[in-house]
Amino acid sequence: MNKIKRKEYVGYLYILPWIIGFLTLTIAPFVSTFLFSFTDYSVLSGPKFTGLSNYVTMFTLDDLFLKSLKVTLVYVFFSVPCKLVFALFVAMILNRDIKGIGVYRTVYYLPSIFGGSVALSVLWRMLFMGDGLINRMLATLSINGPDWLGDTHYSLITISLLQVWQFGSSMVIFLVGLKQIPDYLYEAAMIDGAGKAKRFLHITLPLLSPIIFFNLIMQTINSFQTFTAAYVVTSGGPMHSTYLYALLLYDNAFRYFKMGYASALAWFLFMVLLVVTSLLFKSSGFWLHYMDSEN
């Protein structure tokens, strides 16, 4: 008995690296961000308690905060649904029994492996700048392309497109999900005379909903924190039209060294994400469907 107990405590020894890391690099920073958010903290001097003033400043004095929040919400609510609809659409085509699916999958996945890398953002800049490849190609079709990066009407869309272009990883996850839907369901539906649209609405969508939900949550959390594209391609401009929240946070923390204010910004983003994800979780009760509940 004693021997078994001693053996089991060894488990703590194995997870020790994570425990130490969790306490020092996750829990402590998490609490600190919250505490710093009530202080004026400029790195050189220590933190000074200032109550709620950071939060008051955010909403009353900092125009850039509201601007950035708006830009970020537009970015997230445009790019995430576009990316997921696209990923699902392509995955459904690839899920049909066609030759060469491996090749297509590879090609469509390729842009995703570069993640938020600088190289990809540099490429985006070369493609969409005033005399970039896109406009030169449009010119050969006698179309006068817009100033993608310099016009506030197009800049945010251009940044979002980079995100949509990387739909590959969501697509691969959808493909796995689609493979798990048993064929007999479709066959039964076809015998009952259900058309394509009906089969999609009543079989594919409900059975895939846990995976859609999962992709939605992960993509939303990631998109709220997008940095590289906006920083490298447009530097947040023009006129702050691509000034995503991560840029605002970076500027305050690491350019102006307003650590207290930046902590308040970080905490606010955390609250926004908490609200958005819990709304998604709440709403999932209405549309989320698990295969097990069927039987």
Binding site: A28, A246, F270, L273
Partner: peptide, 21 residues
């Protein structure tokens, strides 16, 4: 549970204290 939960925790909320550490 905490370990899995921390996967979902946005990095931005840990960023500044980690930098200071």
């Amino acid at each position: 549970g905490l370990m899995i939960g921390s996967i979902l925790l946005p990095n931005t909320v840990l960023l500044i204290p980690r930098y200071l550490i």
